[in-house]
Every structure is written in C-alpha cells, then in structure tokens.
C-alpha cells in the first residue's frame, strides 16, 4: 500500500504504461543487494533508491580515496577516509528517506556471502574483481536470486542479466577465465551508463516490464557511441549453472 506522499513522489513513473501503483508497490516490497559501492554501485544505488526500491543492502569493505572521486559519485571530497558504505548510506538516505538503506562494510567472501545475501530478491554485481564476481554468480545461482552483471574498462561498459536455471550465467560467458587484478583505466561516464543499465534491468525485473538482457551481452562503446549485442548461450557443461538446466 502506497502512502499519499509516495503516490506523489513516484507519480511520473506510476504514469508509465504497465507500471502503475502495483509496479510501485512491487518496488517498495523489493530487497536489492548491491555488491560494491564504487563506480557501478554508485549510479545503480542512486537510481534504485530514487525509484523507490524498499530495501537496499550495500556491501563494500573499502574506504573512500581521492582517486575514487572521478567516477564513484556517491562519494565526495569530504568523505575521504570514510567507509564507502557509510558515505553511500548518508547520501542515499538524504535522496530518499523512504528507502531502508543497509550499509555493510565487509569484504564479500565464501564464508560470509550466504549470510549477506539471505533474504534478498536481487543481486547487482558492481564489483571490481573477477573472483568476487564469480562467487556472487555461483551464490546467486545456488540461491535462485536474479543477478545483474556489469563491468567497465576505459570507455567500454558491459552488462548482462542472469536468471538462475533459465539463462546463461557469468561463467557461461567467461568460462572461468580471469585477468590479473590491477587498477584498470576508467572515466566516470562509463560506469554511470553501465550502472544505470543494471539498475534499469533490476527495475524491469521487479516490476515485470520489458525484455531482459538475458542470453545477451550488451557492449557499450562510448568512444564510438554504440551499443552492440552478442549472443551468449547457456553452457550445459558450465561449472556454475550446468546442473541447473531445465530447473
């Protein structure tokens, strides 16, 4: 049930065909887990909070550094030295006091991930390293939680949506491959677009609108200003989701 203030706050999106008060109520009931409060996590969290998602749990163990501020727009100069989750929670609560913001300053590990995602309906992958991304992918599949992947490098962004048991997963896409963990080049506008795509997919999933970015890798090339799509097939031998075929 939406309050009068909520009807007014979300009036313009409730007007969207197929969205309505029921769509808004679905957003209000939703609990979204955001893994990472950096370049991707910032825009994803901002737009999910603005849209009225009921609960956002943001998990990140880092503190804000000066070199983050070209792209991690939830964090400002005055936040340097703070945990990213505290910095993010402060802004998001001011943006939309109606959203329950849970800030968790922990590193995501095999030991704690089950506890961290328990009770959540969606996982947004806004991490900056592959081991954590694969761990999230595997956990999302095991716990049947839709998973919204995004990644950036320089002026290039990528996104894909994973529905456990039904679509290709992150491991189907990359087959367990890794790249060395090192600082990658990036400018803020790239994760801004990519994180918003992840948030858009999450909202579409919750409300039940449109066609999801499943079995498709979206590649945003900001230098050429193009969006390209590549087909990603579910791998029956995938070590993460192969056993979920036909679920």
């Amino acid at each position: 049930m939406l309050t009068q203030a909520e009807l007014e706050r979300y009036q313009r999106q409730i007007m969207i065909h197929g969205f309505g008060e029921e769509g808004q109520a679905k957003l209000k009931r939703a609990k979204v887990f955001i893994a990472g409060a950096g370049g991707l996590g910032s825009p994803a969290a901002i737009y999910l909070a603005a849209a009225g998602v009921g609960t956002l749990r943001i998990v990140d163990h880092d503190t804000v550094e000066l070199s983050n501020l070209n792209r991690q727009v939830l964090h400002w100069d005055e936040n340097i030295g703070m945990t990213k989750t505290a910095s993010a929670a402060d802004k998001l609560r001011k943006l939309n006091p109606g959203v329950n913001i849970e800030a968790v300053a922990e590193m995501i590990t095999e030991a704690n991930i089950s506890r961290l995602v328990a009770g959540f309906d969606l996982i947004v992958d806004a991490m900056d390293n592959l081991p954590a991304r694969y761990l999230l992918n595997k956990t999302a599949l095991e716990k049947d939680i839709p998973f919204f992947h995004g990644a950036v490098h320089g002026f290039e962004g990528r996104a894909m949506t994973i529905i456990p048991g039904k679509t290709a997963c992150l491991n189907c896409l990359y087959h367990g491959a890794t790249v060395p963990e090192e600082k990658s080049p990036v400018i803020g506008v790239t994760p801004a677009v990519t994180g918003c795509i992840q948030a858009t997919e999450a909202i579409k999933y919750i409300v039940g609108l449109g066609k999801l970015l499943t079995n498709r890798l979206l590649i945003y090339d900001a230098l050429e200003m193009t969006f390209a799509e590549l087909k990603v097939n579910k791998d029956p031998n995938c070590e993460h989701c192969g056993n979920l075929s036909g679920k």
Partner: peptide, 10 residues
Amino acid sequence: LDLLMLIAGG
C-alpha cells in the same frame, strides 16, 4: 568476427 577481452572493472 568480434575480438573481445574479459573486463572486470567496476
């Protein structure tokens, strides 16, 4: 052909 490399930045 599309030639890609895995990216993981966030």
